[in-house]
Design a binder for these strands. Structure first.
Length: 496
DNA sequence: TTTTGAGTTGTTCGA
DNA sequence: GTCGAACAACTCAAA
């Protein structure tokens, strides 16, 4: 049985890649470089993920070569390249890992029809196939906790998957031109050393280090902005450089306490929940999960959005998050929540404005995870709590960055401010600010909104909207109906 | 069908 | 500084 293994950006690994369970070792292995993504112009629009992707592709090419195989890179649109390649190579099947995204499903449907041989889509992105966890009423869960209980009762890790001992080099058929694996230079990118490094060995090292060290106090430290208490494997999971099954297995085989295992695997179950929810409700990538929110009067003030993106809102933790995102492609989970809460609740901006900004800049930017995270923060996501949960950015800072080290790292103009005032510099005595070299309104902004007023405005707006009263907000309403975040969604094949 | 317990991550107020 | 209750009464999922 001759097989074409089609790698495609969410499965950039050799260990526990489902294709190697399925295919003979006489497999032609290909990655298609779609010019819609692999050009300097396009790479500039998402440089962090491109850097990680390029590093992971180079590592994958090397790893396959070390095992005696060959990963070919072919330029073109996969909808054209894959059917032609399958035919020219006379394969009996094309094997790929399934994507759960609606545009991926659409693409795969089209490809399956264009192919003369079967397109075999393999599970592997999630622990259980999305859509397989159901309530007693056979409906998808809409809140996390019952989903997680059901997941734990159903899921049992049966296998850690295969690790091929050797691969064989299968030639590209005549008429196809192989191109080199893209490099940062070929895409016009300069390496950003602040980003998490791509590649299977790097990712495995990251996981191992986490399990040896901070995982032992994960439940305590995971919320701290000023410690590296989290695993940092989000990009590895997004690109499939680590398989979630291997992560689960590594956690379970580790020496962590049962409580810590449960705490960490809960995060993996959140990932399952988000994919599953997207599978059942593909339109959540552009629409609120809770339909009642469809016409919520979010604003689209470009100036406010610009201040938030640049980290100039005057709320130190919020600003630190924005700057960490641009500099490193990563934001601490709690900082993401505070930043998202601020954009939606304090600034009343449409959550999709923040969502698409994060999707552009996050190295781990994944459609389902990002969208569901933003919707949870905005209040329109899969959450049973009522809509009046509003983070206080000062309280959050004091609680989870007590010494202000996170703020000092990312908002250096405040680095001289005493911990007592660093999360609310406008409350500091004038002398303390002068001593720290801070001139509010000059070296660092005054708060762009007053917390108390902004909080009350959101509550008022939400209350009015949900009681079906006409909403009259100060600056006029703009009932937004986005058709999805548009250009952030690739219509074709390759990872963004 | 109705009822009941519970829901990732909160904030504010007042004792 | 710490603690418990109030916030405003929401919905889901299972019994």
């Amino acid at each position: 049985m001759k097989t074409l293994i089609w790698f495609r950006g969410k499965d950039l690994r050799v260990s526990d890649h489902p294709a190697f369970e399925h295919a003979t070792n006489q497999a032609l292995m290909v990655f298609v470089l779609d010019p819609a993504y692999f050009t300097p112009d396009r790479a500039q629009t998402r440089p962090h993920r491109m850097q990680y992707l390029v590093e992971s592709l180079l590592a994958l090419e090397q790893r396959i070569a070390d095992l005696g195989g060959k990963l070919w890179f072919v330029a073109g649109r996969s909808a054209d390249v894959i059917p032609k390649l399958a035919k020219a190579a006379s394969v009996d099947q094309v094997v790929a890992m399934r994507w759960a995204e609606p545009f991926g499903r659409k693409r795969d449907g089209q490809l399956a029809r264009a192919l003369e041989v079967p397109l075999v889509l393999l599970e592997g992105e999630t622990l259980l196939p999305p859509g397989s966890i159901r309530s007693q009423a056979d409906t998808p869960y809409t809140v996390f906790s019952p989903f997680a209980r059901r997941f734990r009762s159903q899921f049992e890790l049966k296998s850690r998957g295969v690790e091929p001992a050797e691969l064989s080099r299968v030639a590209l058929p005549d008429g196809f031109k192989s191109v080199p694996c893209p490099t940062l230079g070929s895409l016009g990118l300069v390496r950003n050393s602040g980003l998490v490094k791509g590649g299977e060995q790097e990712a495995k090292g990251r996981l191992a280090l986490f399990l040896e060290q901070s995982a032992h106090s994960y439940s305590d430290l995971r919320n701290r902005l000023d410690f590296s208490g989290t695993s940092r494997i989000s990009a590895d999971l997004k690109f499939g450089v680590l398989s979630v099954r291997q992560v689960w297995a590594a956690v379970m085989e580790s020496s962590l306490s049962e409580a810590e295992k449960t705490c960490f695997t809960n995060e993996l179950i959140w990932r399952e929940f988000n994919y599953s929810t997207m599978w059942d409700h593909p339109d959540i990538l552009g629409m609120p999960f809770k339909r009642k929110w469809k016409d919520f009067p979010w604003k689209r003030d470009r100036d406010l959005l610009g201040l938030w993106k640049a980290g100039l809102t005057g709320y130190p933790v919020v600003d630190a998050a924005s700057r960490q995102l641009l500099a490193t492609g990563f934001v601490h989970n709690r900082a993401r929540m505070v930043a998202a809460s601020f954009l939606t609740k304090h600034l009343l901006l449409d959550y999709r404005l923040g969502e698409s900004h994060y999707l552009r800049w996050l190295t781990d930017g994944d459609w389902a995870q990002n969208s569901m995270g933003w919707q949870w923060a905005a209040g329109c996501g899969a959450d049973a709590q009522p809509w009046f949960r509003i983070f206080n950015p000062v309280t959050q800072g004091k609680k989870f960055d007590p010494n202000g080290d996170y703020v000092r790292r990312w908002v250096p103009e405040l680095s001289g401010v005493d911990a007592k005032y660093i999360h609310s510099p406008w409350e500091a005595p004038q002398r303390a600010l002068e001593w720290a070299g801070v001139h509010l309104g000059e070296t660092y902004p005054e708060p762009v909104v007053d917390h108390r007023q902004a909080r009350e405005r959101f509550l008022r707006t939400a209350k009015a909207f949900f009681s079906d009263q006409p909403v009259m907000s100060e600056e006029g309403t703009s009932s937004t109906s986005f058709g999805g975040s548009g250009d952030e969604f690739p219509a074709t094949s390759q990872p963004a």
